[in-house]
């Protein structure tokens, strides 16, 4: 304490000088806006510089950790991309959902053989049993219905084309909802007829004909064609000519549809009929 006092006494001139200058500078920065702004800017830039240096150091020091994180991230992303998956199954993905039960499974296929000029036309697809194709599955194109799977081998399937005298599908007029069987008469690759529409129904040329929901094979409401002509047959029923939406002359890519509830429905209907 005494030493301190002695120090102060000995250097009182410099100490006093520093003290007074400090006071004066304090006043300067306190009461002169210009100087205040200047000093604030200066301190800010100094502080900014310091923190930049500090952040740089911190970033450098944590590079190892950053690298580890990046590698983990990369692994995660590599695990997500498609190329790291091998196709293990030909089965389509089944999603379990308790609210929406899945009814149809769509599988895409290529047409590898097709005819339109016979009375009983068949289409061959490049997918078969291995890919989950079974008999009595519906075949659709983007424009409209194509046919029904008849036979399958391991890798191929044969489809009864709509252009086949044996083909029959339940169709309805979208506007009115009246339904009846749709057949091919063997005349031309772009026309079919819809029968059994009652005579009191007003038919318009240009009505859309779609699959009815009464088929266990085809999903409901799928496009078949557009009415182009109609006439009464036997006084009670219309025979409606339908322009097919599907262009059978130009068919390459189709979808095969499996109805997951077909078995159940057929079983039920059979037991009801046998009673």
């Amino acid at each position: 304490m005494r030493n301190l006092l002695r120090f102060i006494v000995r250097h009182h001139f410099i100490i006093l000088f520093i003290l007074f200058e400090t006071i004066a500078f304090f006043l300067l920065f306190q009461y002169n806006t210009f100087h205040k702004a200047k000093i604030v800017t200066l301190t800010n830039s100094v502080r900014g510089g310091f923190s930049r240096v500090f952040i740089n150091i911190k970033e450098y020091v944590s590079l190892r950790e950053e690298n580890r994180k990046l590698i983990e991230e990369n692994n995660k992303l590599y695990n997500l991309i498609r190329s790291s998956y091998r196709i293990n199954s030909f089965e389509s993905l089944n999603v379990n959902d308790s609210v929406y039960k899945r009814k149809y499974i769509y599988t895409d296929a290529k047409v590898i053989n097709n005819s339109t000029n016979k009375q009983y036309n068949y289409i061959t697809l490049n997918k078969g049993k291995n890919h989950g194709i079974e008999p009595d599955m519906a075949v659709l194109s983007n424009d409209g219905i194509v046919g029904i799977v008849k036979d399958v081998t391991e890798n191929y399937s044969s489809v009864i084309s709509l252009l086949n005298r044996n083909f029959k599908v339940n169709a309805k007029i979208k506007r009115t909802g009246y339904f009846g069987p749709l057949l091919w008469t063997g005349k031309g690759h772009s026309k079919a007829i819809l029968t059994d529409i009652p005579h009191h129904v007003q038919i318009l040329v240009g009505d859309t004909v779609v699959t009815s929901g009464y088929s266990t094979i085809f999903p409901e409401g799928y496009m078949i064609g557009i009415t182009s002509d109609y006439k009464l047959k036997g006084g009670n029923y219309y025979e409606i000519t339908v322009d097919l939406a599907t262009d059978f002359k130009n068919l390459s890519s189709v979808q095969v549809v499996k109805n997951l509830y077909r078995e159940e429905q057929i079983e039920l209907e059979k037991s009801a009929e046998s009673d």
């Binding site: 001139f13 006093l16 000088f17 007074f20 200058e21 006071i23 004066a24 500078f25 304090f26 006043l27 300067l28 920065f29 306190q30 009461y31 002169n32 100087h35």
Partner: peptide, 24 residues
């Protein structure tokens, strides 16, 4: 000397509205 200098500077500062400058 220092005290009188501070007083002098402060007085001038107060009257010329430049608080601190003349004192320093």
């Amino acid at each position: 000397l220092l005290v009188s200098a501070l007083l002098l500077g402060l007085t001038i500062d107060i009257f010329s509205d430049t608080l601190g400058m003349h004192s320093i």
